[in-house]
Computed example of a mutant assay.
Amino acid sequence: MTMTDRLIAPGATRGEVLVSFGTAFAGAALSVALAVGAGLPALAVGVIAVVAFDLYGGAVVNATRSAKLWFHRPGRTAGHHLGFVAVHVQPFILAWAVPGFGWTAAAVVYGSALTAALAVTATPPPLRRPVAFAATALALIWTTSLVSVPHAVAWFAPLLLIKLLLAHLLPEEAAR
Rank of each mutant, 00 (worst) to 15 (best):
A44K: 00
A35I: 14
L169D: 11
T144A: 13
D5L: 12
V98A: 00
G22Q: 10
A137T: 10
A49Y: 10
S112I: 04
P150G: 09
G79D: 07
G75D: 08
L164E: 05
P10A: 15
L55F: 15
L161I: 01
I93C: 07
L69H: 14
W103A: 05
K68E: 06
L40R: 00
F21V: 03
A132K: 01
W70V: 14
G39E: 04
V147I: 14
H88D: 15
M1A: 11
I48S: 00
F156H: 11
A106M: 04
L166D: 01
L170W: 08
W103V: 03
R129Y: 01
M1Y: 12
V45A: 00
H81R: 13
A35G: 08
T13E: 13
G57N: 03
L165S: 08
R14Y: 15
A28L: 13
L146T: 14
H88E: 12
N62L: 06
V147K: 13
E16M: 03
T143V: 08
H151I: 14
G83C: 08
G79T: 13
V45L: 00
A67E: 12
G27L: 11
A119M: 13
V51N: 00
S31E: 08
L146V: 12
A78N: 09
A157Y: 09
V131G: 06
L170C: 08
P130S: 02
S66W: 12
K68H: 09
T23E: 05
S148N: 09
L114M: 12
L69M: 11
P150C: 04
V36M: 05
D54C: 12
W103T: 02
W70M: 09
P126K: 08
T4M: 08
T115L: 01
L164C: 03
V147A: 12
T13D: 14
